[in-house]
Design a protein around this nucleic acid. Structure first.
Lengths: 159, 159
DNA sequence: ATAGTTTTCCTTCCTTGTCAACAAAAATAA
DNA sequence: TTATTTTTGTTGACAAGGAAGGAAAACTAT
C-alpha cells in the first residue's frame, strides 16, 4: 500500500470505529432512540425549516428512507410537520418539546465525546489542523465535480 | 464549530461522498454484484484463510449478516468454503475462478479511482501525509482503548 | 387560460442487516 | 476424565434503507 491508500484506509477504519463507539454510547444514554433518529433530530434542531429534500441531500439517503423515518418520528411525537401559506407542496419539520429535550441530551453527549478525545486533539498543532482541513476541502471539491460529471453522464445516457 | 469539529465533520462528509461515488461507478462496472459483495470478495481475495470471525471484525458487522452474505456468495459460485483437518469448527473461505475474475475487475477499478483523484493527492506533501497518518494512528489507538473499556464495562454489567 | 411536459416531493414493496436464541466444537478448569 | 466456559457459526423474526412508482406543483408554449 502506498501512502495515499494508507491514508484513505486509515481514515475509513478510524471512522468505522468512531461511529460504532459513539453509536454504542448514544444508544446507552438515549435508550429507545436509534442513532439514525438522533442524527435526524440533531439536523432538524440545528436547521430552521428543514424538509425532506434537505434531509435527503445531507444524509446521502434515499427519499423513501427519509419519508419513513420522519413519519415514525412524528408518530413518536418527537417532531412535527408544518407548511407555509404560499407553498402547498413542501412540508417542513420542527422539534416538539420532547424532541428538544432529546436534542439537549445529545448535545451533552457530544461534549462528552469531545472530552473523551481531548487528549488526542490537544496533540494536534494548528498547522496540522489547517493542513488536514485544506486537504479535506480540496478533495471534497474534487469529488463534487466528479459527482456533477456523473450526473451529467446519467442525464445524457437517458436521452 | 471549532477546528476539531470541522475536521471530523469534514472527513465524514468527504467519506460519504467517496463511498457514494465509488459505489455508483462500481455497480456500473460490476453489474449484478452489490458493493457489499464486492467488498467481501476484495477481503477474501487479499487475505489467506479468511473466516467468518475475521470478516466480522474488519467489517464491523454482526456474525449473522456475515453468515448470510457468505452463504449467498457460495450459492452464487463466487466463493467456496473449506476446513482444515485439525479443526472441525472454523470455516474458511477462498475465491472461485469466477470470484477471482471479479476481484481483478475490482482491482482495475481501484486503479481507476486513484487515477481520478491523482490531481488531489499530487498536491499533498510528504509532511502532510505523515502528519495525517500520525493523527490517524494516534486517534485510532485511543479509540481502541475506549472500545476495550466499553467491552469491560459490558462484561462487568452482565455479572 | 390551458394543455402538455418536466420537476419535485413523497409513499409503498423488496432486499439486506441486526438481534436473539441456539447448537456444536474447542479451550479451560476442576 | 468430566464439567464449565468461550468461541464460532446458523436460523428466524424484525427493522432499516434503497428502488420504483405516483401525485402534486411548476414550467413552457401555444
Amino acid at each position: 500500500m502506498n501512502k495515499e491508500e494508507l491514508v484513505i484506509a486509515g481514515f475509513r477504519d478510524l471512522f468505522n470505529k468512531l461511529v460504532w463507539l459513539n453509536k454504542s454510547k448514544m444508544e446507552d444514554s438515549l435508550k429507545g432512540y436509534k442513532s439514525s433518529e438522533v442524527h435526524c433530530i440533531e439536523y432538524i434542531g440545528r436547521n430552521e425549516d428543514s424538509n425532506g429534500t434537505k434531509l435527503v441531500e445531507s444524509f446521502y439517503m434515499t427519499s423513501g428512507a427519509i419519508s419513513k423515518m420522519t413519519k415514525k418520528l412524528i408518530k413518536k411525537g418527537i417532531i412535527e410537520s408544518y407548511q407555509k401559506p404560499d407553498n402547498k407542496k413542501e412540508i417542513y419539520f420542527r422539534l416538539t418539546p420532547q424532541g428538544k429535550a432529546i436534542y439537549e441530551i445529545h448535545e451533552e453527549l457530544h461534549k462528552e465525546f469531545q472530552e473523551r478525545d481531548k487528549a488526542v486533539f490537544e496533540q494536534v498543532t494548528e498547522e496540522q489542523f489547517d493542513s488536514m482541513l485544506s486537504f479535506v476541502e480540496k478533495y471534497s471539491r474534487h469529488l463534487d465535480a466528479e459527482i456533477k460529471k456523473l450526473g451529467a453522464d446519467i442525464k445524457s445516457e437517458s436521452i
